[in-house]
Amino acid sequence: MLRDLDNWYLNKSEPNKSCLQALRIWIQNSDEQITEAWKYRMPFFCFKGKMFCYLWVDKKSHQPYIGIVKGNQIKHKALLQEKRAKMKILPINPNKDLPIGLIGALLEKAKTFY
């Protein structure tokens, strides 16, 4: 599992690679109850053992995003639902500083549903 996870990040091109690696580290260190997992051939993060969020790169825009599993329960203008039933995504611009305050607030809100 760890090898697949590491390879997923390493196979990305810059600036997405650095952005995704920074998000990985930040999410893992944000709460000791968050664990990393390899599910559906993508990096997932679990909270209390349940699927919580994931990282991915949009196929059209080529920008990274954080997918929030119970995002449909969060109302915030930065989150996009698009054609997803449960999840919403937070697009991340890899050429700018990470919006750590926003990410932290959204993930804290998402934790309340677990």
Rank of each mutant, 00 (worst) to 15 (best):
M1C: 07
L23K: 03
L20V: 11
L55E: 03
K12L: 14
G71V: 01
A85Y: 00
E82D: 03
W26I: 10
K60Q: 13
W8Y: 15
I27H: 02
K50Y: 01
Y65A: 02
F47D: 03
I25T: 15
D31G: 01
W38H: 13
E32W: 02
K70Q: 15
N7F: 13
S61V: 03
P91S: 12
W26N: 03
G67Y: 00
K86Q: 07
A85W: 01
I92M: 01
Q81W: 04
K86A: 06
I25L: 13
Y54D: 02
K12Q: 14
G67D: 00
L55F: 04
A105T: 10
D31H: 05
I74Y: 07
H62N: 04
L98Y: 12
V69P: 04
I25M: 10
I27K: 02
I100G: 06
L79T: 07
Y54A: 02
K86N: 12
M1Y: 02
K109C: 11
L107F: 10
A85D: 01
G49M: 11
T35N: 07
N72G: 15
K86H: 12
L23Q: 05
K70V: 05
F52V: 12
Q21S: 01
T112F: 07
K77Q: 11
M42Q: 13
R24L: 02
P43A: 14
K88F: 11
I34L: 14
L106T: 11
I25S: 12
L79V: 08
L98H: 12
R84S: 13
Y65G: 01
I66E: 03
K77T: 01
H76L: 10
M51W: 01
D4C: 03
D58H: 09
I34Q: 09
T35C: 11
A110G: 09
W8C: 07
S61T: 15
L102M: 14
N72H: 15
K17G: 09
N29K: 13
G104E: 07
P94H: 12
N72A: 13
R3Y: 06
M42W: 02
V69F: 04
K75S: 05
G67R: 00
I103E: 10
P99R: 06
N93M: 10
K88D: 09
N16L: 07
Q33C: 13
Y9G: 00
L102I: 10
K75N: 08
G67L: 00
N16W: 08
T112Q: 15
K86S: 11
G71W: 00
N29P: 01
M42A: 15
I66Q: 04
Y65H: 02
M51S: 15
L10H: 05
K70I: 03
D58R: 04
P43H: 09
F44I: 09
L2A: 08
D97K: 15
K60W: 08
K60C: 13
W8Q: 10
Y54F: 00
K88G: 06
I27S: 03
P64R: 03
K17A: 08
S30H: 12
N29S: 05
K60G: 08
C53S: 11
S30N: 06
S61R: 08
F45S: 07
A105E: 15
I74W: 14
Q81L: 09
G101F: 13
E14S: 01
E14G: 00
S30Y: 12
S61C: 04
A22I: 07
C46I: 06
